[in-house]
């Protein structure tokens, strides 16, 4: 009953955490020659999860196996295209990283807020007052 009580936000929280780590890597390597900036395509990864599927599978036979979430969807780390490449082969652009980091921070907190309100709802339902 409580398997999917948090919906997509459970996975979103983990993915946002992973993306935050990838962006922190980029910022740590801003002065490393030949380092290539990396990022996770968020919409694509979330689209691959069950929550993003438009038509969920229905079990019509007892031999069918349940489709489980399988934990964290693997966030595929890809290289980012720089707006202006630097001479030392480094593709980290600090303003881009900072903007993405701030955006990701807000999204993480939003997911956290949704989960918190779900927990508050459950508590309210359990206590009945």
């Amino acid at each position: 009953m409580f398997d999917n009580v948090f919906g997509i936000h459970e996975q979103a929280l983990l993915l946002h955490g992973q993306r935050l780590s990838v962006l922190a890597n980029n910022m740590a390597n801003v002065d490393t020659p030949n380092y290539k900036a990396r990022d996770i395509d968020f919409a694509e990864v979330l689209g691959n999860t069950d929550g993003g599927a438009a038509l969920p599978m229905t079990m019509t036979n007892s031999a069918h196996m349940a489709l489980t979430d399988g934990g964290l969807p693997a966030g595929e780390v890809k290289y980012r295209n720089p707006f202006q490449a630097s001479l030392d082969g480094n593709t980290v652009e600090m303003p881009v990283e900072q903007a993405a980091f701030a955006e990701n921070n807000v999204r993480y907190q939003a997911s956290l807020n949704f989960i918190n309100s779900d927990i508050a709802d459950l508590k309210y339902a359990i206590a009945g007052q």
Partner: peptide, 12 residues
Amino acid sequence: LDSDGDDSSAGV
């Protein structure tokens, strides 16, 4: 390393 072999963790 994650499932694809990409490492999300690095440092300098």
